[in-house]
């Protein structure tokens, strides 16, 4: 005779429990947290370097930089002036999980952070399943990629709150069309906030900085 044991539990319930705890701690300290996701090479680290340079004197920015191997990204962020930077070397894992982030957060004094960036592993599939306790995911795409990427990785674009289109200084050098990528992304997620930037020419970056600043201000005034 067979028998069924009911489980009805999320596969990632362990991760989700930790993520919930992270979210609680971040909220308690009024920290705005963004989980940055993209393909390898879209410019996550470059965007963060520029952000540190522009806002580092005004806001207390903490960064967790995930990579499969090397601490290169974390080193770049520290060199750009990042005062609170922690690397996570996943050693092969294709995504960050809440356990890794919990460990990194223990190395920061949360009372001294306004804005936390978690730079995920360059991958548009796996990181979408893992809640890291962040306020929102920000997806990056660059003009040297296909403008159909939102259609290829819909899960990630649906779960993101903002999309940064990087390398717009190179528009026209490839078949990437700005209008098409926006149309593709908005079909999947009509509420996506879109930024068009170039980390190289710095075009469009002020809008991104202003948005970050407004998120922090809003968080501080929340009851």
């Amino acid at each position: 005779m067979s028998e069924k044991i009911p489980v009805e539990q999320k596969v990632l319930s362990e991760n989700d429990k930790l993520a919930l705890e992270i979210r609680r701690k971040l909220a308690e300290n009024k920290i705005v947290s963004l989980n940055l996701v993209s393909s390898p090479g879209s410019g996550k680290t470059s965007l963060l370097e520029k952000t540190i340079i522009a806002l580092g004197n005004k806001l207390n920015i903490a960064l967790i930089a995930g990579d499969v191997q090397t601490e290169n990204d974390a080193n770049r962020l520290a060199k750009a002036g990042g005062k609170m930077v922690r690397p996570i070397v996943t050693g092969g894992a294709c995504h960050l999980d809440a356990r890794m982030v919990t460990k990194s957060l223990m190395e920061f004094d949360l009372t001294k952070i306004d804005l936390l960036f978690i730079e995920n592993v360059g991958n548009l599939v796996c990181p979408s399943s893992y809640d890291l306790g962040e306020d929102m995911k920000v997806v990056l795409i660059s003009t040297t990629e296909g403008d159909d990427k939102p259609l290829k990785y819909p899960g990630m674009f649906r779960r993101s709150s903002a999309m940064v289109i990087n390398k717009i200084d190179l528009l026209g050098m490839s078949d990437f069309e700005l209008a098409r990528v926006k149309e593709n992304a908005l079909k999947i997620n009509g509420n996506l906030k879109i930024f068009e930037v170039s980390c190289r020419s710095e075009q469009g970056l002020p809008d991104w900085f202003e948005w970050l600043d407004s998120l922090v201000k809003q968080r501080k005034t929340e009851p």
Binding site: M1, S2, E3, K4, I5, P6, V7, E8, Q9, K10, V11, L12, S129, R158, L186, K187, G190, N191
Partner: peptide, 21 residues
């Protein structure tokens, strides 16, 4: 034709039950 739509199903990643004997 609004794009302001909310997900109600399709995001599941759950274990339903285990059958044993």
């Amino acid at each position: 034709f609004s794009s302001n739509v909310n997900l109600i199903r399709g995001d599941e990643l759950e274990i339903i039950d285990i059958e044993i004997e």
